[in-house]
Design a binder for these strands. Structure first.
Lengths: 255, 255
DNA sequence: ACAAAAGTGTTGTGAATACACCCATGC
DNA sequence: GCATGGGTGTATTCACAACACTTTTGT
């Protein structure tokens, strides 16, 4: 490995895989595509695709997100690099190194993207069967990361439409964490954090059809939560985040 | 991008870059190598190298770490994936996608690795001149990440030798964060977290040559800090961690 | 009237801060 | 003795959890 002979090695393919989440009706859902061909024909897989020669992985991820969701404007969506999966045997066909990204969207349209996706669908995160490649692990890593970031960032608003109620924001937390939160305390905490949300003066909206109309809020410009909004100590908590060595990994091609 | 023609695209090189930190005498230091050839001849760069065809990026990172530090046993060291840098123009020679790793070590030997490193040295993190490629950014990202993880994990012990005093542990925090901490409170916080450290019964050691001998501790088996040990609100705090799009990136070849 | 959902108030407990103070050692 | 660093105690402040209660809507 001295010089820079481009063809010194078997080439590596570099791809992106997308773990796209949304919260709909109190259920955490992930965007998945059904594979039409081997390997893993018939299995669900994460959307993704090759990084093109002149784009960065981040650019490729946003391009794939647009193709896969069919959304016209994907520029405002939250998209964040998760980690890279590079086990040599991730993909039986060839050596594929995949940079995984996590995306969060509000009120998703049914996909059927304009892109090449065979059949893209939103499926509930809980109770997913085994996915193709190591996509189970990627999706689980993404879920863990999103759950953790809700604690110390204002990320939750990325799941919400431009105008939302505090109840809806709370439901994001409860859905991602899988725990119930105390409404008065949640409310105080959110409002006490400057820049997390800003109230829209006159606006209000009914949420469940019944009950008092709720005030509407917009996402603020803050990005961090100080102090954090910690989830109640319940689960044994994975806690030791992504390690270096033991990282299975795989990738999915959508086209 | 339909099939799987291995040579459909200009090949991507996949490399690892290492941001290796240590704390010596209250100074945060990074392991860097001096580049002997263009591009960036004479500049300092992160150690790193190609991922070989049959190894994962994590395996490659640990191999490079051993080569670069010259340490016989590198298996116990903390090594963790940071993120991947993939801007198309990172390296002027060809398309290089680099998976960056962060490593932490205690009381480092002077490098001069058995490896191929031209001239590897520990340099103080503060006041580093511009590094080769986008290694400035990688190193800054790594520093930010380590600082953040000290808050909510037991990572600090990775900077310490097998037996250490609480004063030394505190110095790790102070050095990485660049802030002073209250000793009594730090002590209570650490001891109140079960599994963070465990005292070695009879042992004690002088630290500064003067003063009362300090009790010795070993790293415990805990991995998370609940509740976290937050750094005093001071710096504007980058807070919004790695985003997707704006990620310059580069790589360094050591051989 | 009742249910459902938003919103407010209060109170007790625990944690973090900011100190003051004592102990052991080298010089 | 004094400087240096380890170790203990304590009071104030702050944040949070828990829960009772009021308000506004639809049925």
């Amino acid at each position: 490995m001295e010089g820079y002979d481009k063809y010194a090695f078997e080439p590596f393919a570099v791809t992106v895989d997308l773990a796209v989440f949304t919260v709909r009706a109190g259920v955490l859902q992930a965007l998945l595509i059904e594979r039409g061909q081997e390997p893993f024909a018939g299995h669900w897989a994460l959307p993704g695709g090759f990084v093109l020669p002149d784009e960065s992985a981040g650019t490729a991820a946003r391009r794939e997100l647009a193709e896969e969701t069919g959304l016209a404007d994907v520029s405002g969506l939250h998209l964040e690099q998760l980690r890279t999966y590079s086990e040599p045997d991730r993909d039986p066909r060839m050596r594929v190194v995949s940079v995984a990204y996590t995306a969060l969207l509000p009120d998703p349209p049914e996909p059927r993207g304009g892109g090449d996706a065979a059949s893209a669908r939103w499926l509930p995160y809980d109770g997913l069967g085994p996915l193709a490649f190591d996509h189970d692990r990627i999706l689980a890593d993404a879920h863990e990361r999103v759950g953790a970031k809700l604690e110390y960032t204002c990320l939750a608003t990325a799941f919400c439409p431009p105008e939302f109620t505090l109840g809806e924001l709370q439901q994001v937390y409860e859905t991602v964490w899988g725990t119930a939160l105390d409404r008065p305390n949640f409310r105080r905490k959110v409002l006490a954090t400057p820049g997390f949300v800003e109230q829209i003066p006159g606006a209000a909206r009914l949420t469940g059809g019944r009950g008092k109309p709720a005030a509407l809020y917009r996402a603020g410009d803050a990005t961090a939560l100080h102090p954090p909004l910690m989830r109640p100590a319940s689960a044994p908590s994975p806690a030791s985040a992504p390690q270096a060595s033991p990282s299975p990994s795989s990738e999915g091609r959508s086209s």
